[in-house]
């Protein structure tokens, strides 16, 4: 095994071009577990810790450019207003120690369906800034996840940043685990209301081979909100609409049975989380404010 320590982004790209099998390591929260448990022996480890810009973020007019290694704890603390869904998701990541090291780049690189950030990114709308010595490109989040633990990155590409749409409405995130902290998702659900475009976006984690959106549910809800004039009236959403949304979200799930949960439970739980998070976000949109967001 070789340990590559590029001092700059350009050096990192060059190293990755020269050694496409090199495994990038930043927070180490996935890679080191695999090494410690002898599940993986990469030929090269490519340490990204020395590249300071990866741990920085910029808040633009419409988007936040989030460096791939910005730790979850920083997102929770500093980007709650701009990225409320991702901030909530960040709070559910493993433990404080892990949140101090891990960042969105790792979740995306590993592309596990159980990665906590994915549903929030899908719901908010995001683009992954991937780069190689050949050039830079932006991969829409909807096209990023290509299979179980597979993503759209080319072997010579590294994730530099994620461009996430700033919230234009309430967002929520919910995750089921069988412990009250430090737990991997049995399944997860993210929702973002986008009043500016009068759309709703969602993300489902751990309930399909990849993170997915519940598109039928989104379309149904957008249409129902539009037809009922809810965006303007800010009326309470009728229970039947919420139920239909929840059922469609559950229907979007394509889960499996495993040691963490059964497929049928996952489907059921996605539906419950969809209904609840819709309720919380809509109450928040209505201006009810207090008591809908949850505090911790």
């Amino acid at each position: 095994m070789d340990f590559l320590r590029p001092a700059s982004w350009e050096e990192a790209l060059a190293a990755k071009a020269e050694h496409p099998t090199a495994v990038p390591i930043a927070g180490g929260t996935d890679v080191m577990v695999e090494i410690n448990f002898d599940h993986r022996r990469p030929e090269y480890l490519l340490d990204l810790n020395r590249i300071g810009e990866l741990s920085q973020w910029e808040v633009g007019e419409d988007t936040v450019r989030l460096g791939a290694s910005v730790p979850y704890s920083q997102i929770m603390e500093h980007l709650r207003a701009e990225l409320p869904g991702l901030a909530l998701a960040s709070h559910t990541v493993a433990s404080p120690q892990i949140r101090n090291r891990g960042g969105v780049g790792g979740n995306l690189g590993t592309a596990s369906p159980a990665g906590d950030a994915h549903p929030a990114l899908l719901a908010a709308g995001a683009e992954v800034e991937a780069e190689s010595v050949r050039g830079s490109r932006r991969i829409p989040i909807d096209d990023f996840y290509t299979g179980v633990k597979r993503n759209a990155l080319a072997p010579d590409e590294l994730i530099r940043a994620v461009h996430i749409k700033k919230a234009d409405g309430p967002q929520q995130y919910s995750k089921v685990g069988t412990r009250n902290a430090m737990v991997i998702a049995v399944c997860a659900f993210g929702i973002a209301l986008h009043p500016e475009t009068r759309t709703v976006r969602t993300g489902i984690g751990s309930a399909a081979p990849t993170p997915i959106r519940a598109t039928a549910a989104e379309e149904f809800l957008a249409a129902a909100l539009d037809e009922g004039g809810f965006w303007d009236s800010r009326k309470i959403i009728t229970p039947s609409v919420a139920k239909q949304f929840a059922d469609l979200a559950a229907g979007a799930a394509n889960p499996i049975d495993d040691v963490r949960g059964t497929a049928s439970y996952r489907r059921h739980a996605v539906g419950i989380m969809a209904r609840r998070t819709l309720g919380w976000t809509w109450e928040s949109y209505r201006g009810a404010g207090r008591g809908t967001e949850g505090v911790a």
Partner: peptide, 23 residues
């Protein structure tokens, strides 16, 4: 229950934010 809303740390699901008292 707190003045700022539901403290999820004291609810089932904990930090995973699954309920604010529902169910």
């Amino acid at each position: 229950e707190s003045s700022e809303g539901a403290d999820v740390r004291q609810l089932p699901g904990g930090l995973s934010n699954t309920t604010h008292g529902e169910g």
